[in-house]
Write a protein that binds this DNA or RNA. Structure first.
Lengths: 218, 218
DNA sequence: CGTGCATTTTTTGTATACAAGGAGGTTGAC
DNA sequence: GTCAACCTCCTTGTATACAAAAAATGCACG
């Protein structure tokens, strides 16, 4: 499918930006990166443009590309949108979800429960991701599922963080169960509210983390 | 701001794809287009990649790029998402909108009314666009406003179409007034419902147009 | 006459070479 | 001594040249 060097490079750079290897504001030097990847500037430039369109880097004409980590304000905005989109997915899915998908959700939740028992936040996140993607898909709207998935991906590192807060795992777990209950009942508004709250609380927790990090830095 | 040839070319191509100059499935030849623009393949390729990321063309590795007009199903999906996003904008805006913005909405509506009286669908669409963008902005969420605007832009040619249906202009007008009333009252749910319905009806009208075109072609 | 393989040709992907614009330093004037 | 203008170097943007892969064509064989 994607056998172009440029795409592989874009993927790698995206990962590095998300995991913080390149801090905010860092200039990404074309020639140096090209060397390090063992390619010429051409595919590297294509990769950078791809990143620019995803919003991960800013491209100042004739000046270079700079890593552009979303600030606190933008992050909260993104979490708000994420909450709303998941909410919409849930509302639509409530009327369209199949029995098989409900079983899948149960299975994912069972795995989540195991992870909670094992206090394994990473494993929890993995299954949590599966859980959410099932709902996106069951919205019955491929375009919505894709867009929601894209935003989910972009917020991934930040969503993960807040799971490490004490007591968050069991709380998230119970929210998941409420969501499934609403979906099983075919109650659109309830599913919408439950999902919106579920994601909104993630934003809140994350905000709290940010504030703590900031005050710790001072 | 954007003084790169590649960006200008991307813009031009985007327009041509949207207005149907290049039909669905058309292969976009790099060398021919490069010649026609009087540039080399490099900036042209960058433009094509940009379009690929916006979803306007599909890029088969080692095979070329092809215009990819959204099919009826995908279009309806996009309209559904559009309706939901506008709805969210409206709900948020109801609690955040300023008096100045309300005045702007009134002004835009006044212009719309003039266009209705003049039976000028183009003028109507112009002011209609302004109307909606004010609401996006007043959602108070820059990220949401940007994403909603992007989708609006993509659906633009299809939104325009349905305005030419008989009786649609006055109907749309009255919907606008309901929306402003809900926003002025600070009634989030009402604004959300009004906006969702307003956009959803566009999707419906558009679907009707599609069906008619299709049957006419047979 | 049709089909399958090989060759040729076209086209994409990548590398390199060239041009243009900006950033920073140095020098000269006030 | 300081400010400004000019010059130089470095980086980005663009063009061209090269390589590899896929499509097309022709030839041979069944």
């Amino acid at each position: 499918m994607e056998r172009r060097r440029a795409d592989i490079i874009a993927e790698t750079l995206e990962e590095r930006i998300c995991d913080g290897t390149y801090p905010d504001g860092e200039r990404l030097d074309e020639v140096r990166l090209a060397e390090s990847f063992g390619v010429s500037r051409t595919p590297l430039r294509e990769a950078l443009q791809k990143l620019a369109l995803s919003g991960l880097v800013e491209q100042l004409p004739r000046r270079g590309v700079f890593v552009r980590q979303p600030g606190p304000v933008e992050l909260m905005e993104m979490f708000e949108v994420m909450a709303e989109m998941e909410s919409v997915c849930g509302r639509l899915a409530a009327g369209r979800i199949s029995d098989e998908a409900l079983a899948e959700l149960d299975a994912a939740n069972a795995e989540c429960r195991k992870a909670v028992a094992a206090q394994d936040a990473d494993a929890y996140y993995l299954e949590n991701e599966r859980f959410h993607h099932i709902i996106y898909r069951e919205s019955g709207n491929g375009f919505l599922a894709q867009e929601t998935g894209a935003l989910h991906r972009r917020l991934k590192p930040f969503r993960r963080m807040q799971l490490r807060l004490r007591g968050r795992l069991p709380q998230s777990m119970s929210e998941h169960e409420q969501i499934v209950a609403a979906l099983r009942a075919g109650d659109g508004p309830a599913a919408a509210d439950a999902l919106r709250a579920h994601v909104a609380v993630q934003g809140e927790k994350f905000r709290f983390l940010m504030a703590r990090l900031k005050s710790a830095a001072e």
